[in-house]
């Protein structure tokens, strides 16, 4: 499903106070089946951008289209429902949304809201448990009794249970230990590939960008400053510096080596294997 932002501005109108626009004049297009990373400093508007995709935040100017549904400043209930069924959205710390008595009930919450039949829900839950690596024995447990990593899985499974075509993730691995983090991201990447989910993911970790994403949206001060593929981003030193973006571990290592040696290499390595091969090739080691 196509996602397009057409000259969108948005703000959080709060009570009597007129707010300045948080997002200004955004235009972008996300192609179906792509994995897009969204990067930028805190407060840049990354989370707000994600909220535009399923109408939790509506544009004040311009329009957002998701598939055939178009959002402008006003959105009908049907349009919202339709889009929210198609878009699975995991907020930061999605485990905070768990509430039901059992894991099973929590997973069934989303599909029930979209009036899916009980028998179909049952099959879907079995399927998402498999996808997310949740053991069947956990289904009757209380979600509150699980470990942090498990809760995160359950929360993500609960989002997948509505069978979305688009997956929107706000720092899905924040606050997890390195092992759980890797597991969650591998799982999401696997889902993206096998279920052909169009995926958008906010992250601060440039290694994740390199490992999982096809292209990158760079945000700062409520604007989309660049939208380009991963390799072009890390080749553009000026851009990286302007928006104070980190570089992947491999590239950082390469830069340190270059500095120590007082020589500059042409090619920029993004992964450690790539760097190792390249250094051997160049005869540095």
């Amino acid at each position: 499903m196509h996602i397009t932002f057409n000259r969108v501005s948005a703000n959080y109108q709060l009570g009597p106070i007129k707010r300045a626009d948080i997002l200004t004049d955004l235009s972008a297009e996300v192609t179906p089946g792509s994995f897009t990373a969204v990067v930028g400093p805190t407060g840049a508007g990354k989370s707000s951008l994600l909220k535009l995709i399923n109408g939790l935040l509506l544009p004040s100017v311009g329009e957002v289209s998701v598939g055939e549904v178009v959002f402008t400043a006003k959105a009908s209930k049907q349009a919202l429902k339709q889009v929210r069924k198609r878009v699975g959205m995991a907020f930061q710390f999605p485990e905070h949304q768990l509430f039901a008595e059992t894991v099973y009930e929590d997973l069934a919450f989303g599909p029930r809201n979209f009036n899916i039949s009980d028998s179909e829900i049952d099959t879907t839950i079995k399927h998402v448990c498999q996808l997310t690596g949740i053991d069947q024995s956990l289904l009757e447990r209380s979600p509150f009794s699980l470990s942090g990593g498990q809760q995160r899985r359950v929360a993500i499974a609960g989002i997948l249970a509505t069978k979305p075509d688009i997956l929107v993730l706000d720092e899905p691995a924040a606050g997890l230990d390195p092992v759980a983090k890797k597991q969650i991201l591998e799982m999401l990447s696997h889902l993206h590939k096998t279920e052909k989910l169009t995926t958008l993911m906010v992250t601060h970790d440039m290694d994740d960008v390199v490992h999982y994403a096809d292209d990158v949206i760079v945000m700062a001060e409520g604007q989309i400053k660049a939208h380009l593929d991963v390799r072009s981003l890390f080749s553009d030193q000026a851009l990286l510096e302007r928006y104070q973006l980190d570089v992947p571990t491999a590239l950082s290592l390469q830069q340190q080596l270059e500095q120590a040696k007082g020589e500059q290499l042409n090619h920029r390595s993004l992964t450690l294997t790539e760097l190792a091969d390249y250094l051997i090739e160049e005869g540095w080691v």
Partner: peptide, 11 residues
Amino acid sequence: VMNAQKARGMV
């Protein structure tokens, strides 16, 4: 939390 549940289809 409200946003998260809305995203899961809650009205």
